[in-house]
């Protein structure tokens, strides 16, 4: 579903990604972990077609970036630590707007379905500015899956959420992933990543330093694997 070969990204003289190879099978839930500045967000922005690679090949759902970016974007949902929704519109208006941008037919039925999924059906006519941070993040997930994407990218989705909001987000994430979608999530929260993901990739110094499936972790836990990857 996602295939990245020898991906390099430079910002001026600074090289952030130094030849990343990354492959994700359909339906996999990959947690992309790494310290601050490892290049996780840059990598996800390239997958999302928001940033152009300096070198390398990026294919998503059979389409190549950046040449076939529009086709990739139609099959991609993105959730970042910012909600990407408008404060002065209601939840329903926000989704209606994004529905029009994605050319979704029968959008009202789909919006109801998505709002039910993220637990915001009762607040559909409320302005987003009245929502808590957790509710905004759930709406952001609703926005990201509105067009029923094959691949969903989550960039630090738990940033700024309290325990309750994070738990609710866990449920939504599991629902999204449980529908056969391919998910790539960056996170600093190893415990949450360990609960949700089926594979763990460690990005360090601009390359994938280690990769393991849940089963591959064996008796050791994710923290041990993570520390070993960074030390190596």
């Amino acid at each position: 579903m996602i295939e990245v070969k020898k991906l390099v990204k430079r910002f001026g003289l600074k090289t952030v990604l130094r030849g990343v190879d990354f492959k994700v099978q359909p339906g996999e839930f990959v947690a992309l972990l790494g310290p601050n500045g490892a290049g996780k967000t840059t990598f996800l922005r390239i997958l999302a077609s928001l940033s152009r690679p300096s070198m390398g090949i990026v294919d998503i759902a059979g389409y190549s970036l950046p040449k076939q970016a529009a086709a990739v974007r139609a099959r991609l949902g993105v959730v970042s630590h910012l909600p990407l929704v408008y404060d002065d519109l209601t939840a329903e208006e926000n989704l209606t707007f994004y529905g029009r941008m994605y050319g979704i037919e029968n959008a009202s039925a789909r919006i109801t379905e998505v709002l039910e999924m993220v637990g915001l059906e009762a607040r559909r006519r409320d302005l987003v500015r009245t929502f808590s941070r957790g509710m905004q993040q759930r709406l952001a997930i609703g926005r990201a899956v509105l067009h029923d994407p094959d691949v969903v990218l989550f960039d630090e989705p738990y940033t700024g959420l309290d325990q309750d909001a994070s738990s609710m987000l866990d449920d939504v994430l599991q629902t999204v992933a449980g529908q056969g979608r391919t998910v790539v999530m960056t996170s600093h929260d190893l415990a949450r990543a360990e609960n949700l993901a089926t594979r763990f990739d460690i990005l360090s110094r601009g390359v994938i330093a280690a990769s393991s499936t849940r089963e591959g972790l064996g008796n050791g836990n994710l923290l041990t694997f993570y520390k070993q990857a960074l030390a190596g």
Binding site: A74, Y86, R100, G103, I104, E105, R110, E113, M117, L146
Partner: peptide, 29 residues
């Protein structure tokens, strides 16, 4: 939290028309 009953194949985006996207952005603002 309501459990989802989403299907995965019924809401594929049609190619959004250029004019509809212009109207959507203007309407939103």
């Amino acid at each position: 939290m309501t459990e989802s009953t989403l299907t995965t194949t019924t809401h594929r985006p049609a190619k959004s028309s250029f004019w509809k996207a212009i109207a959507a952005v203007a309407w939103k603002d």
